[in-house]
Structures are given as C-alpha cells and as structure tokens.
Design a protein around this nucleic acid. Structure first.
Lengths: 334, 334
DNA sequence: TTGTAAGCGTTATCAG
DNA sequence: CTGATAACGCTTACAA
C-alpha cells in the first residue's frame, strides 16, 4: 500500500506532527531529525495524499476548464495554454468538453463543485446565467474566457472581437476592396461582435452596409461549404470575403479552388483566430490572431489571484487581437 | 459555506449515519425519513464532498490522461473520445500534456499519484520504462494508448500500425503505383511500424525496397515542408507518396501545388490518421484512419476493469485501421 | 524541539 | 430502522 505519514513517523521514531512539519517547513525542527525524516520519506517514496491535505481545508490545486470542444483547434490551443500556465502554478486541470450542450455544461459544473476545484475557467458561451450566479454564491472563483456577457460581473478575459472585426475591415479597405461579403456565426456572440467591428470599419469609410452580403454559417465543414458556394455562385462576386473563423475561411479557399476561382487573384479572403488551419492553408491565410497565450496567462493569473484573495473586485481584461498577414488578400490599388 | 452531511443531519433531526445511508442507498431506511432527507438535501443544495468520500478508501473517480500535445489534432480527438467514455462511467479527466518532454511526463506522473487518480491513460511514447514499473509496483492501473512497447506487459490498446502501413502499400500498388516514396517519422515507433507494414506490402509484390526513397521527417510543418521539397525537386519523381501522418501529407499537397505539380494527376499521396486535416485538404486526402473512438472505448473499458479488479491479467488490444478513400490517389492502370 | 489531540467530511461497523 | 463511533491521511493549535 501507499505509505502514509504514519509509516514515515514510525520509521523515524517521531510523531506524525513532526513529520508534517518537515513536509510543510512549518515550525522549528532540529536539522538532525529533519534530515532523517527527509531521508526516510525518500526511501519510502512517501508522498502526501492531496486528498487528505485538501480535506484539512487547504486547496485541491485543481481547476476545471470548460470548453465546448477540445477537438476544435482553437480550444485545443486554449487548453494547452491554460494547462501550461496552471502547471507553472502547481495546478492541475480537469478537462470538461461540453460538446455545446447546456446539460453537459451543467453536469460538469456540479461535478467540479463536488470535487472541490479551487477555481474554474469557463471558455464556453455563457447561456444559462443561473449556473454562474450559483458559482458566485458558492464563492468559487471563476473566469469567463474569451466570452463576455454584460449580465455577468465576474472576471472576464477576452479577445476584443469588435476590434478584431474592425482590423479585418480596415485591412480589406486599405487593400482597396469595396465589394465585400461576410460569413459569420451569428449565433455566437463572438461572431456578432466580429461582424459589428467589421461593419464599423466599412461604415466609417462611407460604405453602405445594407449592400454587404452577410451569410450566416456555423464553424463546421458542411455549413461553411454551403456558405462558400453561395458566394461563389454569385454572378456579381465580391472582391473580398471576411470569414469569422479560420475554418470557414479555409473551406472557402477550397471551394473556390474547386470552382476554378483563384485566391487571392479573383477573390481575397481574411479569417479569424490564427489556428493551424491558417498556417497550413494554401495560400497562407491572412487572419486576425487571437492572443491565446496572453489570454491564458491573464486568465490563470486572475484566477490564482481570486483563489488567494476571494471577493476581490472583478476585472475585465480585453486583449487586442492582431493581424497576421499571409497571402490570401490581394492588393487592389495598383 | 458549502453544506456538509452534518447540516443535513441536523436539519432532518437524524444522525449523519442515516443521511449517509440515503445518499448511498445502503442499509434500510423508512421511506418517510428517506424522502425527508432527500428533500432537505435538495433544499440545501447539498453535495457530498468527493474528497472526503475518496479519503474513506473509495475511488476518486478521476483518471489522468497523458498526451504529448493536446494541440495536435490527433491527440485532441483522442482526448475528446477518452473524456467522453470516461464521463459515461462517471469519471473525470485530468489533462496532462507532456510537450514531448520526459521530465514533464515524470512530474505529471508523480502529481497524479499524489492526487490519487484511479487510473492513468498513457498516450505518450513510452521512453523511460522505470516510471511504468513504478506504476505497476504502486498498483495503479494504467493503459498504454496507441503506443506499444515490448518490454511492457501492461494493458495496451493500440492501432495496428504495421497493418495500417500495409494497407496503404497495398492500396497504392492496387492503383498501379510502383515508383513510390515515403515520408515518415522514424524517431517514433509508430512511424517505424507504419513504414514496416508499407515495406512488406511492396516487398510482397516483388518490389525492391532498396530503391524506395524514404525520408525522415517529424510531423511538424517546417520539417514536412523540407521533406516534401526534397521529393518534388527530384528529376525522376515517384508517382505516389506515403506520408506517415496527415499533417505531413497535407503539407506535401501544398508544396506540390506551389511547385505546380498537380495532385493526384502528377503525384498521388496517401496519409495516416484521418484527422480533420485530411478532410479539409484539397484534394481530399486518402488516408489510413485510426479507429480513435473504438480505441478510446476499449481503453476506458479496460481501465475501468482493472480499477475494479486489480491484478487482472493484462491484455493487448490491437485495432485494425481502415482506409478512407478520398481524392488524392490516382488510378494508374487504365 | 517535539508530541497530543481535535478536526476536515465521509463511510462502515456494530449496537441498539 | 437508526445512531454512535472509529477510520481515512493530514494540518494545526496547544501542551509538554
């Protein structure tokens, strides 16, 4: 069986209290007994049980991470970044993929409470606010990651989606594009915000947004294909397309190629997220990069802080996305 | 504060023993008190602390999952599948990305022991066998996932990589290809095994494998590019290429396009893994599909079994991969 | 400097 | 059918 603190104590001919003290470096113990105990712990391969430790009122050093789908490259990278930062703080991550199902999200939240995680990172779209109120009541720290919600005054770390859309818009304008179409996830607030920012860029430039074709599509292969085809079949095609995710953009590129429409010569496209898809795409996809590792760093930092000092005032941190220029947008001016 | 079993007991005017019994449905309690207690638990939003439960010798209902990199689509899908199956069994997953570093793997393993996980799924290349011996001694169940190692007589659930390579080889032969090149990760055993199977297919057909160009490349963008270029610059190009991962294959497709070499008209290519890359690629990538969800199901099944009956004899389960035909291989015969 | 003992939230054994 | 109580492995006053 796994050795316990008693085994160590017995072997060292001291009380468990003494052992505990050397483990935690609390109280004063003579060098001699200390070294002896250390040795014996080594020999026995003793490791304190986190369970028991946690039960005495300390932390579990575990946090929950809620994502919609870990197989989505964006969330995979988010998870990796979060895990990295958590690890550096001695924390471990429980992965919870909700598969976009509210019920599963609910179940996981319950589970995490039962397991007494020290905090939760929520990277799913906030739908059912009750649950979050619940967390607040329970006094368990949580951070909304990459999704914001006005009704929530909790800690939020998010990309400035509006700004990202705006960036995309400005870039296309700068390259001389005026006839533009958009494919976006209107169901998701990020999709809406990105569209919003994009719109502002165009409107600022005096473009009548009424005439801009906006197509709704989820960020899944099937829907994105249809959306792309819809645009590609237009007799009067736009010169550029803004896609609210890289996946949508990449699918568009492929569909265009099938239709013998060259990117960026015939149509330009710009994406959003800067996932591996953008890098692999051919031509390389110009896109708006989410600052994932910064987001993750801030999120964990914030979480650690509110674990240590509960009831701290809540911040909203909004990080600016950046434009990553590759080869999918054509310069129209010359 | 979170209500405890004492709060419930007090409110219901019974002892904690009674409450415990209704929680676990053990022993006999009158319908009346039972319902009463149930109601009160509801009202108080009481939830037993998994920590305390675990401390009394039961399970933690947590398993550790070790992967090299969750941002790699293959492992992301593995993680999702594992998580799904675990969830169905009431288990929760601690995600551990080792980033291909042995040290991190080691640290995580220690951590998992401290946290008293009920079992571990190891989806990293087994390098340092000592650690696994350690797990065996500690008597903590673990499953090797998708990687095998002769020195280990532990539970193993893996894709039959040799067979996968063989399938790929047969397919290319069947399509009439004789002049073939391979790009594979020779560092990793899966890469070697896939190559091995592929080789056998060709050798069976009387092809002299000495003449087959085998290029080593990790499954990362930079290296894959170089490997692709190496082949594309040949004056005497092969008619088909076998890439040991989809990522390598997709990069090859892109490089070929840049070099104005048409796929599959000029060169055919077949991949391995059937990740999202294969689906998105243009042309769609014909590839060998790993049966990820079956692997995950078996792995969790096996793990659950050895959690319940420790010391069970160890199985090796090897699942056959299948060929997924898309459009990247040309029929040469007609 | 070291030890005793209470307490953390459960389960389980054994009486009543 | 219900209730005391020890036990799980550890931390932490408080004593010695």
């Amino acid at each position: 069986m796994k050795p316990t603190i008693y085994d160590v104590a017995k072997e060292a001919n001291v009380s468990i209290a003494t052992v505990s003290k050397v483990i935690n470096n609390t109280g004063r113990i003579s060098e001699k007994t200390k070294n002896n105990i250390l040795e014996i712990m080594e020999k026995l391969e003793y490791q304190p049980s986190s369970l028991a430790v946690a039960l005495t009122g300390k932390r579990t050093f575990t946090i929950g991470v809620l994502v919609p789908d870990i197989a989505n490259p964006f969330f995979a990278e988010v998870a990796r970044a979060l895990e990295n930062n958590a690890r550096e703080n001695g924390y471990t991550i429980i992965l919870c993929s909700t598969d976009y199902q509210l019920e599963r999200e609910h179940d996981y939240l319950e589970l995490l409470l039962k397991k007494q995680v020290d905090g939760i990172i929520i990277a799913t779209e906030p739908k059912d606010l009750k649950k979050f109120k619940n967390l607040q009541n329970r006094n368990i720290p949580f951070i909304m990651f990459s999704f914001d919600h006005l009704a929530l005054n909790s800690h939020v770390v998010t990309t400035d989606d509006v700004r990202g859309g705006y960036l995309a818009g400005c870039y296309l304008l700068e390259k001389g594009h005026r006839k533009i179409a958009v494919i976006t996830e209107t169901q998701r607030s990020s999709g809406q915000l990105r569209l919003e920012g994009f719109k502002q860029a165009l409107v600022n430039e005096g473009i009548n947004f009424e005439n801009v074709l906006v197509i709704d599509s989820k960020s899944i292969i099937e829907e994105a294909k249809k959306a792309a085809q819809q645009i590609l079949e237009l007799e009067n095609k736009p010169t550029a397309v803004f896609a609210s995710t890289d996946l949508i953009a990449v699918i568009f590129i492929n569909e265009a190629r099938k239709a013998n429409i060259s990117i960026p010569d015939d149509i330009s496209i710009i994406g959003f997220d800067n996932t591996i898809h953008a890098e692999i795409a051919d031509p390389g996809l110009t896109t708006i990069a989410q600052p994932i590792s910064d987001l993750a760093r801030y999120a964990i930092e914030q979480l650690m802080q509110s674990i240590e000092q509960p009831g701290l005032s809540s911040h909203r941190i909004m990080l600016a996305p950046t434009l990553v220029e590759r080869d999918s947008v054509r310069e129209l001016n010359k």
